[in-house]
């Protein structure tokens, strides 16, 4: 019987292909399928807010420029990671991240909790030429961000696409996306109140690049960097101790 079976596989290339699929698919299914029910096991974060249109635009710039190639956004449950970068990252913190930007390499430091650690001015100076503030840095200069106006016309569509994949943006948010982007980077303007109303009290309204009259890509990227790790406080409420790195010297 087995011989007959194998002969058949042997004779028909299609049977062989099916065997490959049978062998290869199970591993992925077993590991991935249970993750669709993961919301039952992970922590909840009722206070978590959404990315504002400006922050989302900044996130898209972060992706576009390939920042993830050198900066992780995932603090591991290791003591030295936690002491260097802050409380370890929780699954819930990236639940609105399409895609996740956990990264795989730290040519530069982790950025999961960079938000609020440095001033807007520091970020702008650093992005213009990193060696002005960190002489030993090997990060590229991003001067062009400051001279590139931010395209806001399609922000409504961007938010709508995010809603398609499961992020709960409201019709109100989508309709006001471009105005909210402008308002967040232009304090004291007519639009600032709206963005705080829609995205919550903790939304940071600031002239991120120091120039309130014009909206640039620098505004968006700095707004995103400043919100990293600050969408929810869930990680600070966790009590579980972090693991000591195996073999770490102390």
């Amino acid at each position: 019987m087995p011989e007959l079976f194998h002969r058949k596989i042997e004779r028909t290339a299609i049977g062989f292909v099916l065997a490959i699929i049978a062998a290869a698919s199970v591993g992925g299914l077993v590991e991935i399928a249970p993750l669709f029910t993961i919301h039952e096991t992970v922590e909840e974060a009722p206070d978590m807010r959404l990315y504002t249109p400006l922050e989302l635009a900044g996130r898209n710039i972060y992706e576009r420029e390939g920042c993830y190639a050198c900066h992780s956004q995932m603090i591991r449950t290791l003591r030295d990671d936690v002491e260097r970068y802050g409380p370890y990252s929780l699954a819930v913190e990236s639940k609105y991240d399409h895609p996740m930007l956990w990264g795989s390499k730290r040519t530069g430091p982790d950025l999961a909790r960079i938000g609020g650690k440095y001033s807007d001015l520091w970020h702008v100076t650093h992005l213009m030429n990193p060696r002005d503030v960190v002489p030993e840095s090997n990060m590229p200069s991003y001067r062009f961000l400051a001279r590139t106006p931010l395209e806001t016309a399609d922000f409504g569509m961007q938010l709508a696409a995010m809603r398609e994949v499961g992020v709960p943006y409201t019709d109100d948010m989508i309709a006001n996306a471009a105005r909210d982007a402008l308002g967040q980077a232009t304090p004291d303007s007519d639009f600032s109140a709206g963005v705080v109303e829609r995205y919550g009290e903790k939304t940071q309204v600031s002239a991120f690049d120091g120039v309130a009259t014009e909206l640039t890509e620098m505004d968006a990227l700095v707004a995103y960097l400043q919100v990293l790790g600050r969408l929810t406080d869930a990680a600070y409420k966790q009590t579980a101790a972090s693991e000591k790195a195996p073999g770490s010297q102390q």
């Binding site: 199970v26 591993g27 299914l29 077993v30 590991e31 399928a33 249970p34 029910t37 993961i38 039952e40 096991t41």
Partner: peptide, 18 residues
């Protein structure tokens, strides 16, 4: 189907399959 059932199924039947 809840998370624990899926995980248990994955772990046991994955092994038998292997």
């Amino acid at each position: 189907m809840d998370h624990d059932t899926l995980v248990a199924f994955s772990k046991s039947w994955g092994l038998f399959y292997l």
